[in-house]
Amino acid sequence: MTMRHSSRAKIGPPKTLPLTENPLARRYLLVALQIGITVALLAAWEIGARTGLVNRFLFASPSMVWDVLVKRSVSGELFEDIWTTSAETLTGYAVGAIGGSAIGLGLWYSRFLSDLSAPFIAAIGSIPVLAIAPMTIIWFGTGMMAKVMIVAFSCVVVSLTTSYKGAMRTDGDLINLMRSFGASRSAIFFKLVVPASMPWVISGLKLNVGFALVGAIVGEYISSQAGVGHMILLGSSNFSMNIVLAGVAVVMVMMLVFNFLVGLIEKSILSWERK
């Protein structure tokens, strides 16, 4: 059906495409609609809150949330919280995601060790962060260290397993080629296995951005003096939905920024993939 349709379109006189089929117009249309929908929802929410149709105690309003963000920006409180959560997230991420990737790649060296550790890795991977978070507070105190550990724990298994999978998928013919050059096992590892696994490692790193931020916020929920999770927790314990929602908005922005940063890393490491 589609085939016949398109062949007829080629023969017949040129017709202007409908808006939704012209790729550029389609993109602008989509963005315009998305912005429009967002603005409409926020406006409806705001108007609803002002007219009393929406319960301001339960749902606050966009302007109330905005006020919180402005007030806390001016006082500097907001940046302190963002900084605290970012530091926990990034440090824990560096330890867990990067450390996990290194271990996962390293397991390529020893089939025996990787087979031996497989069930233990699976066991650790099956523990929800929430279940061990309280324990880390006991072990590492209520400061930054506990959160870093929770974040690292949330990232390590995913990175370990994806990068191990990547390493094990290295093309056997490429390994043979290296062997035919007389390459040592470590030359094969560093010159072939590591770069060949990068798409996998990066996919693990990308998945972990979300896990890391969730880990930091969970850690702050359990015990904290600062951080965006702390802000949300305090807000909700005072029934201040405006503070809670301001915190949620901040988390969304942080997520966007972290994803963007990892995207930059991906672009620079995997530049060859697009060729």
Binding site: D173, L174, L177, P195, M198
Partner: peptide, 8 residues
């Protein structure tokens, strides 16, 4: 048969 170049 495959050229087996390292793409990176």
């Amino acid at each position: 048969q495959k050229d087996l170049l390292f793409p990176w």
